[in-house]
């Protein structure tokens, strides 16, 4: 295990946080950027899920994806709504709020519920923050902006697209590790799968964007499908690459009784 070089958690935090926020901030001019930012956050969130779920949560990996988006959606709504006078600060406030909620839950899980997972507090904070960026990014890609009252409520909340973003965003984040976990799990393979789940979500978000924004949604959908195929091919190659190292031991030798 140790000789395989892994991308450090800090680099993935920077990748998800900076990539995600740039995507969200570019979304008013280029709605597709929101979805691309969300894919960065999906990759980051999937790695955080991997680090914490390795310890065995007792409840299965899906629970952590669901709590992530639960915290993320509360924080995203809060950040965007409270910063109405300075809309530029909204996404940052959302991420900070998510981190605070995640930190509180992580602290309680560690010290009150006594889960005895050393990375619990850090990973819960990261998971909540990435959940908030996933919600912000995909919502912005559908609404074409991240203005809560004028754009998100009529274009994302009223028509129920938010439920889709909540659920599929959670699955995009929890599925990669849930599918790859096991003794031969490797970070690179899981990250490619995270990219592919994020991109397939982007493709369907593009479909929703055709409904709300018109033609520009089609570009989101097409790029999502292309990215999905690219990432899935990479994942496929990794699977083949790793599978080649599995050595057959043959049948159990017949012994004379």
């Amino acid at each position: 295990m140790s000789e395989i070089k892994e991308i450090s958690p800090n680099n993935l935090v920077l990748f998800g946080l900076i990539g995600g926020l740039i995507g969200v901030y570019l979304s008013p001019t280029l709605p597709i950027a929101g979805a691309l930012g969300a894919i960065c956050a999906v990759i980051w969130g999937a790695d955080a899920v991997r680090r914490v779920a390795k310890y065995g949560l007792g409840t299965g990996v899906p629970s952590i994806g669901q709590i992530a988006l639960g915290m993320g959606i509360i924080a995203a709504m809060f950040g965007l709504a409270i910063m109405k006078s300075q809309p530029l600060a909204g996404p940052v406030v959302a991420v900070i709020t998510a981190s605070v909620i995640g930190f509180v839950i992580g602290w309680f899980a560690q010290n009150v519920i006594k889960m005895k997972i050393p990375v619990m507090i850090r990973c819960m904070t990261e998971i909540a923050a990435s959940g908030a960026i996933i919600i912000l990014g995909y919502s912005a890609a559908v609404a074409g902006n991240y203005d809560f009252v004028n754009n998100l409520i009529p274009l994302v909340f009223d028509n129920g697209v938010i439920l889709f973003i909540f659920w599929v965003g959670a699955v995009a984040m929890l599925h990669p590790f849930n599918a790859c976990l096991g003794p031969d799990e490797r970070q690179k393979r899981m990250l490619y799968l995270a990219g592919s789940t994020g991109a397939s979500t982007m493709a369907i978000v593009g479909l929703a964007a055709i409904m709300t924004l018109g033609a520009s949604g089609a570009i989101t959908m097409l790029l999502g499908i292309v990215l999905w195929l690219i990432f899935y091919k990479k994942f496929w190659d990794e699977v083949y690459n790793d599978a080649a190292s599995v050595v057959g031991t043959g049948l159990i030798p017949k012994t004379e009784a």
């Binding site: 952590i64 988006l69 639960g70 959606i73 509360i74 909620i101 839950i105």
Partner: peptide, 10 residues
């Protein structure tokens, strides 16, 4: 729904 998920995972 968000509060529900947080409170059912804890």
């Amino acid at each position: 729904m968000g509060v529900f998920y947080v409170n059912s995972v804890i």
